[in-house]
């Protein structure tokens, strides 16, 4: 047997951990070598001796005190399970509270904020005056070509078969005079005054337009158209009546010029009224004064 194996067996023998099979092997060695047996016995004696040495110095109480103090500190530093559960619950509650606050703010803001403007869409149909002159005669002809009762009843009953005369032209011009387009209204004025024989109805319409038309161009056109006819008494009457209703200084000045040119004496009271009016333009006042003086001279 090698020395190393013997040493290991002796170590087991000394500590008492030797297996029965190994013990038999070792006993055989002891028989062969009595010195080995003596060595083993001495080793066991030493083993037992150092065992007694262990009880030599007892521990002090301070070690226990220090340990339990350290344990207590560690307990305080370590959160308990209950504390963890409470902490987790608190975190959940915080999250839920935050979400609830957001929802509350959203809903509250929606119902307490400025109301959204209600937009209603409406379709407005603007009935524009006819831009084309109706042709009653042609309609009558159409009725004749298609004598279907339904169509005749549908189109003809309100219309009277009249000839193409000035009344019809004038009513068409009157419609044109109320057109939304200033150019069409100017055209109507030109047509109306271009005929030469201006009726009272035409004059009334022109006076109305001169009074109410929003476009100064149309009004000036009317004045220009009436200038050749300004010597007529009815035209002057219309112009005089307009003086007190006209707010546009330019138009008012043109009317004054027209009346002075025609030396209309019926206009003198209106002109004096304008002189007395403090709002009247000084230039116009001078013009009126000069005009009245020329009348008197």
């Amino acid at each position: 047997m090698k020395r190393e194996e013997t040493e290991r067996l002796l170590a087991d023998y000394t500590s008492g951990e030797i297996a029965p099979a190994d013990m038999q092997v070792l006993e055989a060695c002891f028989v062969q070598d009595p010195a080995l047996k003596k060595e083993a016995e001495e080793m066991r004696a030493v083993w037992n001796m150092i065992g007694n040495e262990a009880e030599s110095k007892p521990m002090s109480d301070t070690m226990d005190t220090q340990f339990f103090a350290m344990l207590q500190n560690e307990k305080l530093a370590t959160p308990s399970k209950t504390a963890k559960v409470v902490q987790i619950n608190t975190n959940w509650l915080k999250a839920v509270a935050a979400v609830a606050a957001c929802i509350l703010a959203f809903v509250g803001g929606r119902f307490t904020g400025m109301p959204a403007p209600v937009v209603e869409y409406k379709t407005v149909y603007v009935k524009q005056p006819a831009t084309t002159i109706p042709q009653p005669i042609q309609q009558v002809q159409v009725v004749k070509q298609q004598p279907t009762p339904e169509k005749v009843v549908a189109k003809a009953p309100q219309q009277q078969p009249v000839k193409k005369d000035s009344v019809i032209d004038n009513s068409a011009l009157a419609l044109e005079l109320r057109s939304v387009y200033a150019s069409e209204r100017i055209g109507a004025v030109m047509k109306m005054t271009g005929k030469g024989n201006l009726t009272d109805a035409d004059l009334r319409r022109l006076g109305l337009a001169l009074r109410e038309d929003p476009s100064p161009n149309v009004r000036l056109t009317i004045l220009d158209a009436l200038r050749p006819l300004a010597s007529r008494a009815n035209v002057q009457a219309v112009l005089i009546s307009l003086l007190s209703h006209q707010n546009d200084e330019l138009i008012k000045s043109s009317i004054v010029d027209l009346l002075i040119d025609t030396k209309s004496r019926q206009a003198i009271p209106q002109m004096i009224a304008l002189l007395d009016d403090k709002t009247t333009n000084p230039g116009m006042q001078n013009k009126i004064k000069a005009g009245i003086e020329s009348f008197l001279n």
Binding site: E4, E7, R8, L10, A11, D12, T14, S15, M43, V46, W47
Partner: peptide, 8 residues
């Protein structure tokens, strides 16, 4: 085991 033997 060897160390134990040598120590003892």
């Amino acid at each position: 085991k060897t160390r134990a033997f040598r120590a003892i």
